[in-house]
């Protein structure tokens, strides 16, 4: 299933947040979206997930929804969004309970995704007993349980320390190699973008427009820290972003004043 964004423009009150975004995301591709703070990345992701409607433009799906997909467009949130009163397995089964599945089928899916994310030993744990990295693993397991066609990830690793982030990035790469999932991945972290993105969309400061799209045609599994080519891409991205980020930073300060 492919995703097509056409002429997305949006205003909150008088401020134009996004302006004329055209983007196509094809199946099995991870598209990273980077841009200065407040340029509308999260807003764009909410449009893609159908949680909000843009003023102008449309988000279109093409091709059949993969069979067995319970929730084609599935979020992974920055702050995990786990229910604190439910155990790990109950948090996963929450999103299956509204679908016509037998208890045994549900149990099978839960066991399977917890296995795949290395959480089998933590089934009965409550979120408050888990570290940040473990919580995000639960959130990823929950997203996988509904067999998403496209994963919408809004800074999924930003609340984690850098070591945990490295580990989870490795996990995501391994997962992609196995399942070839499609993803829109919003991040502030250029290293993450370079590590995980097949294409990297650079947005300008508010109102967010697509400045460039950088393509990295190196297999995800073959990307390693210190790869000169990736480092060059990362430097290039930083060049693009630096001035925007500085301007955006000042803009926000002006807004407050």
């Amino acid at each position: 299933m492919d995703l097509l964004l056409r002429g997305i423009t949006h205003r909150y009150g008088a401020t134009e947040v996004l302006s004329g975004i055209d983007l196509a995301v094809s199946e099995g591709e991870i598209v990273c979206i980077i841009g200065p703070s407040g340029c509308g990345k999260s807003t764009l992701l909410r449009f893609i997930g159908g949680l909000e409607r843009p003023d102008e433009g449309e988000v279109l799906l093409s091709g059949p929804v993969p069979s067995g997909s319970l929730n084609p467009l599935t979020y992974v949130f920055q702050d995990f969004a786990l229910l604190p009163w439910r155990s790990v397995e109950a948090n996963v089964s929450l999103v299956l309970e509204d679908h016509p599945l037998s208890a045994a089928e549900r149990e099978e899916i839960v066991a399977d995704v917890l296995e795949r994310t290395g959480l089998s030993d933590f089934r009965k744990a409550l979120p408050r007993q888990l570290s940040g990295g473990m919580k995000q693993r639960v959130a990823i397991a929950r997203a996988l349980s509904v067999r998403p066609a496209v994963m919408l990830m809004d800074e999924p690793l930003s609340a984690l320390d850098s070591q945990t982030r490295e580990l989870l990035m490795d996990d995501l790469v391994a997962l992609w190699q196995r399942e070839r999932f499609t993803a829109c991945y919003v991040t502030h972290n250029l290293a993450e973008a370079v590590r995980l993105g097949h294409r990297i969309v650079v947005l300008s400061r508010r109102p967010g427009r697509i400045r460039t799209i950088v393509e990295i045609d190196r297999d995800l599994g073959a990307r390693e820290a210190g790869d000169p080519k990736l480092d060059a891409v990362q430097r290039e991205l930083w060049q693009l972003l630096r001035d925007e980020a500085r301007a955006a930073d000042r803009e926000i300060a002006d807004d407050v004043a």
Binding site: L73, T74, Y75, V95
Partner: peptide, 24 residues
């Protein structure tokens, strides 16, 4: 609110969101 939004993003029914997210 992020929990409610999470429920919506997974397509939970209105009643499920009230019963399983808002009430607890």
């Amino acid at each position: 609110r992020t929990l409610v939004r999470m429920g919506q993003s997974f397509g939970l029914s209105w009643w499920s969101i009230v019963r399983k997210i808002i009430l607890p």
